[in-house]
Amino acid sequence: MAVTKADLADTLFQQLGLNKREAKEFVELFFEHVREALETGQAVKLSGFGNFGLRLKNSRPGRNPKTGEEIPISARRVVTFRASQKLKQRVETNTDDLRERLDGDGR
């Protein structure tokens, strides 16, 4: 089961006693500020969790995988994420458990 905005709001309700409406709004605003920063070209650094950055990609030739038709992929700006050393370390330390739980196939 994936963690959703509702689960995150529930965490704020339970841990901090924000009321449900406040908690929901807080979660929404949290992600909106991150989107806004990225939209305006700013990287977002959340220490202990990870960094969101931006990358410019040149246009390149692409193909419709179904029809084989060639379509150019335009130049674009994309978001990248690098997990913090701390988060990567914590995940790596849990490898044995994860392997069992995820059956070796990630996600």
Partner: peptide, 29 residues
């Protein structure tokens, strides 16, 4: 801090995070 911790803990436990309009976090093997 609570939100970031909840998200970190989820990933450490192998849970996906799906935030509509923002994106999803998961583990790759």
């Amino acid at each position: 801090k609570g939100l970031l911790e909840r998200m970190s803990d989820a990933l450490v436990d192998g849970e996906r995070i799906e935030v509509r309009g923002f994106g999803s976090f998961s583990l790759h093997h």
